[in-house]
Design a binder for these strands. Structure first.
Length: 155
DNA sequence: GCCAACGTTGGC
DNA sequence: GCCAACGTTGGC
């Protein structure tokens, strides 16, 4: 049984359309600098898991489509590149501190699932992303929530 | 643009 | 180890 996750991205920085335009429709997911999210990347997120691709800080905010994890957690080598925007002087090959995964586009929703649509659904309204002050950029999603989002996207 | 929520930093 | 100050996130 695969796991399910929600990944946040600001579309001005990297949108699902940028993912679609990427080579092989794949991308690395580097730059996560929060320990709770790091732990999920390093320990829990597995190849084959489903990813809800969420567009934050835009209008309207929505789940824009689905991706799939194609490579589980491995060291975020950008943390070890001086001058890189994700450089962290404490990261070393022995202790990389930060981790990343690779994801691949599965599909872009014809109709994005907005926060309003999520909030109006009995199951989807319980999602972490709707909770006030929920700043985690990577969040676990239950199988029921995943199913609810699929239904909303095809309704 | 505002501001509440939250994580991190650093002085003590 | 506490906690105030600070910077960032992200919804509105």
């Amino acid at each position: 049984m695969p796991g399910f996750w929600l990944f946040k991205s600001e579309p001005d920085v990297f949108s699902i359309h940028d993912l679609a335009a990427s080579k092989g429709k794949k991308t690395t997911w580097e730059g996560v600098r929060n320990y709770q999210a790091r732990n999920m990347i390093r320990d829990d997120i597995q190849r084959g898991d489903g990813v809800l691709f969420y567009h934050s800080n835009t209008d309207p905010m929505s789940i824009a489509g689905i991706a799939e994890v194609v490579k589980s957690g491995y060291p975020d080598h950008f943390a070890q590149q001086p001058g890189h925007k994700y450089f962290d002087e404490k990261a070393t090959p022995e202790n990389p501190i930060w981790y990343m995964v690779d994801i691949k586009l599965v599909r872009i929703f014809e109709q994005p699932v907005t926060r309003g649509m999520l909030a109006a659904h009995p199951v989807a309204s319980q999602m972490m992303v709707l909770k006030k002050g929920s700043r985690l950029s990577i969040q676990p999603v239950t199988a029921a929530e995943w199913q609810a989002v699929q239904e909303l996207a095809s309704a």
